[in-house]
Amino acid sequence: MSRGLRADAMARRAEFSARYGAAVSPSLPRQLSRYLLPAVLLALLAAGLWRVDFSPERIWNGLGKLGFILSFMVPPHPGNLLGLFIRSLGETVAIAFLGTLLGAIMALPLGVLAARNVIPSWIFRFSMRRGLDVLRGVDTLIWALIFINVVGLGPFAGILAIMVSDIGSFGKLYSEAIEASDKKPVEGIRAAGGSELHALWYGVLPQVFPVMVSQVLYFFESNTRSATIIGIVGAGGIGLHLADQIRLNEWQTVAFIVLMILVTVGIIDFCSTRLRFALIGKGRLSG
């Protein structure tokens, strides 16, 4: 009995083809266009690999050396510097934490002002956005090199570097989350006589809060890794010792430091997931 639709569709084939042409038999260019973008990307990838002299042979030979280094790493050992490493790693985490937190707070007003549904002015929004782009476009490492010259070597430069670069990123992410928020709650508050500030505070912020929290927690974890790198240029933390030990070819110590960083990032990831669930509620993480 349910063959009705199929029989009908086939019987009226000519009629449907004429009426709904493209939907029935998509034209060849249209079908090919689906594969155009992947094809272009593949071509770019191939061209790029060719340009940088990609050779499996070099990877293979390199692998031998990598294996050599790995064999020197076993067993990981801190030497007699364990206390120093722990203190430095603590400093790295502190740099990441303070930098992320300061950035997240300072980005709040900027992100709100850069959102289209808050400030409709095109010129204002454009200049806000480009300003944030400048902060974000310069990498944390470059900011670290700049701040070392401004405030001197040490963790303070690292905190400033992470903060400045994160203001740019958070500002952009906040403003996008605000723009993507549902307008209905805002309308509800406005209709009840609330001011624009009320609408923002009670209508928009509760919606974007979960997104903000997830982003900030993710950035904290990612910044812990960045803080290791900026330590290498002298902005405080474990990075300096890591670079030193690599230069000294002390691979067992290098391995130990890397493991310390891995464990720390793992712990942060674990805690931030718990925290996110606690703050947002399990079912609503995606929203």
Binding site: R6, A9, M10, R19, Y20, V24, S25, Q31
Partner: peptide, 15 residues
Amino acid sequence: WFAEEDRLMAVAALD
């Protein structure tokens, strides 16, 4: 990629 028959059925149903 869907067979023409599938597409015909889809437009017939929508029709």
